[in-house]
Design a protein around this nucleic acid. Structure first.
Lengths: 116, 116
DNA sequence: CGGGATCCGGCAAGATACTG
DNA sequence: CAGTATCTTGCCGGATCCCG
């Protein structure tokens, strides 16, 4: 006997697209970490480099360029004697923080499971 | 004159690790979509294939195997005449739903921005 | 200090074909 | 229906060197 038929019309309207589209925003290795590091205050290139354990300068640079192109961060050049550059989240970038926060919560639970 | 010094000791203890660890859970293309499609009810292989636009059988199979290995989903073989297999979220897999939901929310806002 | 240019390697994803 | 096998491709990230 066949199993109870479930409607094949999936109960998922445009959500998968929204999911995919937003995942694309934070795609690329370290991108979520970069956003996370900027959540409290603007930070400079080498500060981010130190914050995010073993990220290479090239990848960090690439990621920052991408995130700027996606409208998630701003890049501000400060007119100081050793030239310095600050990166900060845009208003739209800020909107990702709750999502990343939810992800971090799961990460914490994962840690607890591992230590059992 | 030098810029106001910010403490270089980053204000981010182990959160980046939690972030990275949880991101690893949903790594792999389509993995978030698979979890999302399973959030309401168990679904079968070909149902997922239809739900998730252009995913190949190989990739879906690979992803399902990975997610099972990570403890996020269960695989149940049903003893029906055409053999059928159901996939469902585990309790731990359920914990990802709030995070994915937050991501979807951002995706919707992104849609609105685009249509402006 | 804050990057860009280049080369290179690996893995993941796509396409296609085959199976129990 | 529910996959597996194999091949191929493309992109992403790491390393290194160099620049204003």
């Amino acid at each position: 006997m066949a199993l109870k038929l479930r409607k094949n019309k999936s109960p998922l309207p445009p959500e998968p697209c929204a999911l995919t589209d937003c995942m694309a925003l934070i795609s690329g290795a370290w991108a979520p970490n970069v956003i996370w590091c900027l959540r409290m205050e603007p930070r400079r290139f080498n500060e981010l480099r130190v914050d995010i354990p073993p990220i290479s300068a090239k990848v960090l640079s690439t990621r920052l360029t991408e995130l700027k192109a996606r409208g998630l961060i701003n890049r501000n050049v400060l007119p100081t004697s050793p030239p310095s550059v600050e990166y900060e989240l845009t208003a739209f970038g800020q909107e990702l923080i709750p999502a990343l926060d939810a992800i971090v919560q799961v990460g914490h639970k994962l840690k607890l499971k591992e230590s059992e």
